[in-house]
Design a protein around this nucleic acid. Sequence first.
DNA 1: TCATTAATGATAATTAATTATCAATATCTA
DNA 2: TAGATATTGATAATTAATTATCATTAATGA
Lengths: 122, 122
Amino acid sequence: MERSTRQRTLIAGLLARAERPLSIAELLALGRAELPGLGQATVYRTVRELVESGELHAVEIPGAAITYERAHHHHHHFHCRRCERVYEVEGCPPGLTALTPAGFRLESHEVILHGLCAGCSA
Amino acid sequence: MERSTRQRTLIAGLLARAERPLSIAELLALGRAELPGLGQATVYRTVRELVESGELHAVEIPGAAITYERAHHHHHHFHCRRCERVYEVEGCPPGLTALTPAGFRLESHEVILHGLCAGCSA
DNA sequence: TCATTAATGATAATTAATTATCAATATCTA
DNA sequence: TAGATATTGATAATTAATTATCATTAATGA
C-alpha cells in the first residue's frame, strides 16, 4: 500500500503552496531547504506519480525546463527570459478559430508569452 | 572555403520547396528519395549550419519533433495529432497584452494550435 | 513496540537526440 | 586534369534528462 512519507508530504505541499509551476530543480532546492537530505530520485518519482494520478500537469515550454503545476482550469503561461521562471496567465486570446486553416479541425491550443516578469523588469 | 555539394543543394531545396516546417527525419526521408545514400549526420550538419547562418529557424513544439523552416515573417503553427506534421498558420490573435500580468513586460509570444489537419480530418 | 515491507537516496543504467571521429569521396582551383 | 582539402557517411561518443537498482531507512498494522 502507499505510505505517507515526509518527502511526499513536502513535495505535494510545495506544489500546493506555489503560485507558479515548478521544475524538478526548483522542487529539489525548495525541498532541501526543509528536508536537507531530499534525493533527486525521490522528487522525480513523486512528481511522476502525481502526474500519472492526474493531480499534476506538466508544463512544457521550448527553451525552459519542464515545470509542474496542480491540474486545474484552462490557462496559459508566461516565461521570463531572465529568471527563467514560468508563470500562469489567466484568460485566453480570442480569434483562434480565425487562424485555423480551412479544413483543419482545431481541438486545443496553447499560448506562451515571453518577456520579463515583474521582478526582473523592475 | 565552403563547397556546394549535392547534399547541401538537395537539403536547402527541400526546405525551400516545403510548404511546412520539416523535421530531421522528414528531411532524411525526402532527401533519400532523391539521393539514396544521404547520411543522417549530413542532414544534422547542414541544418545546423543553416540555423547558425540565420537562414533557418527551429520550430519547437512540445510533443513534436523539432522542425525547421526558412526564416521569414512572424507567424504561428498548427500541430496535427494524427500525422504529427507541423503547419504554418498566418496571423496573430489580438489581445495578448491584456493577458500579460501587471508589471510584466511582454516581448514576444507563440501560439500553437492542436487538432487535425485537412488530410487527417477528412 | 516490533516486524513487515514500502520508500528513500546514492548511484548506475538507460534513452533519445545530437555531435565528434575518421577513412573514403567529391568539389574546386590552378 | 590533378592535387589539395572540404565534405560525406558510418559509427562511436557525448549529453542531458529520466529511470532502474539495491542496500538502508522509516511508516504502518498487529
